[in-house]
Each structure stands twice: as structure tokens, then as C-alpha cells.
Amino acid sequence: MKKMDLHIHTTCSQNRIWGPDAVSTPRQVVKTAIRKGLSGIAVTDHDTVKGGLVASKIAKKLDKDFLVIPGIEVKCKNGDIIALGLKNNPKGHMGNFTAIETVEILRDMGALVVAPHPFGWGGVGKHLDNADFDAVEGFNASQLKCVNTRAKMAAHRLGLPMVAGSDAHYHRNVGNGVTAVDCNQNNVDSILAAISKGKVKIYQEKRTKNRVIVYSFRMAAFLKTILGKPPICNEY
């Protein structure tokens, strides 16, 4: 079984309004995940696959057995959607498309498409039923218990695989949500295939409790960006 955190953000992730979306570099994220005994992670920065690609190169230098799945979290008209296994950004602005259209676009690019925190802030909500998702995030460490419970119920009702992720924006929170993937092969395609076939289960549920501290760090990063010292992303 592979133990993986499938929802993580790095300093490559940017918010269109306040800039830096996360406070830890790809290197910090990878080193923390390895130290915590994870088999791998998915880096799902907002609107860019860059963080996942950088993290993958770092992982190969630090631990050849540690796997990084490059991914992206995009915001469509109806909410946030995660695409796993992408090496290129989608063309155009996903905010112009519905959840149904966005899932189709991302799948045509070869991605496994996940509905993150579907009933939390920024989730696709009722559109989960209509869009053809490959999996549902049944546990998100940054969401309330009731939100995760609704996600689990929806996944059961729709017969979709459930995954877990920390939604970490700070490296110390990596691993708060862990997915166990039943796969012996150590490559991205095999892991994604196992997830799509439902060979997964939620392995760890640990709610993130230091969110005030994380938001303070993010505000500090925002102020540094204004002063011309943005967070590092290209850290190999």
C-alpha cells in the first residue's frame, strides 16, 4: 500500500487577489513528506502545475523511491476541481467553464479528476452529481467534520472512490490527510489507475488546527511580495 497526501500547495501557488497562496517551498514540502514516512504526494497548486514539476525533480534527488504526482487545482464556474497527473497547464481560463465542461477538458488532457472539499468553501456542491468525476475528496484536513461527512456520503451514493488530502499551505501540515493506494508499482500512471479503479481508502484523518498561524504566515508572504521579495518557487 502506498500512503499518499493527494492535496498540497506550495509557494508556486498564487491567488489572483493577494498573491502567495502557500508559504512552504516545494523542497520543504517534499522533505517533510519523506520525514513523515509518506510514499508520495500530489502537488496541486492553484492554476499551475509548476510546483508539482519542481517537487518531482527535488524528490528524485532526495529519495528515488518517493513519488510526486504533478497536479493542479483550478476554479471553474461552479467551484474548485483537482486534476492529477498533468504536466501542462490547461489552456484558457477555467473560470469560463462549468464543472461538466472543466472535467471533460482536464480528462482530455489525460488527468484523473477529483472533486476537492465538494461541500466546503469553494467546492462544486450539487454539481458533483452531474460532472463525471473520477474520485471525491472524502477527507480534507482543512474542512469541518460535517463537510467531510457530506463528501463521504456523496461518494458512497455516486459509487466513486474516496481520497484524502491535507490541503496543506504550510509544510508542517503535510500528511494530515492521507490516502492508502493499493498499488505495487511506483509510478504516476499506476497510482492514478489504482485510484480510478477504487483501490484506495482513507488512511489518516487529522484536522489541521493551526490555521490562524498559517494565515499569519501567508500575510507575511504577501507583505514581502509587495516589498519585492516574493516566496521562492524554483528551488531545486
Rank of each mutant, 00 (worst) to 15 (best):
M1Q: 01
K2L: 07
K2N: 05
H7Q: 06
H9A: 02
T11L: 03
I17Y: 10
W18S: 06
G19L: 00
R27W: 09
V29Y: 02
V29D: 08
V30S: 12
K31D: 15
K31L: 15
A33P: 10
R35N: 15
G37F: 11
L38D: 10
S39H: 14
A42H: 05
T44D: 07
V49M: 08
V49K: 08
G52M: 05
S56D: 14
K57F: 13
I58H: 03
L62T: 08
D65Q: 11
F66I: 09
F66N: 09
V68G: 11
I72C: 09
E73Q: 10
E73P: 05
C76Y: 04
N78A: 11
G79R: 01
D80R: 06
G85R: 06
K87T: 15
K87L: 13
N89T: 07
K91Y: 11
G92K: 05
H93Q: 08
G95K: 02
G95L: 04
T98C: 08
I100L: 06
V103T: 04
V103I: 07
I105M: 06
M109Y: 09
G110I: 03
V113H: 07
V113P: 00
A115M: 02
A115N: 01
P116E: 01
H117E: 11
H117L: 04
P118F: 04
P118S: 10
F119Q: 10
G123I: 03
G125F: 10
G125C: 09
K126H: 13
K126A: 14
L128K: 08
D129P: 07
F133Q: 08
E137H: 10
N140H: 14
L144F: 13
T149M: 15
A151I: 07
K152V: 15
M153A: 14
A154P: 05
H156A: 10
L160G: 02
L160W: 02
P161N: 02
P161A: 05
M162G: 05
M162L: 11
V163E: 00
H169W: 04
N173Q: 10
G175K: 01
N176L: 09
G177K: 03
V181N: 12
C183E: 14
Q185D: 15
Q185I: 13
V188L: 10
I191G: 03
L192G: 02
Q204S: 14
Q204W: 06
Q204N: 12
R207F: 12
R211E: 13
I213M: 14
F217P: 02
M219A: 12
A221Y: 04
A221I: 00
A221V: 00
L223D: 01
K224W: 01
P231T: 01
I232A: 13
C233I: 03
Y236M: 13
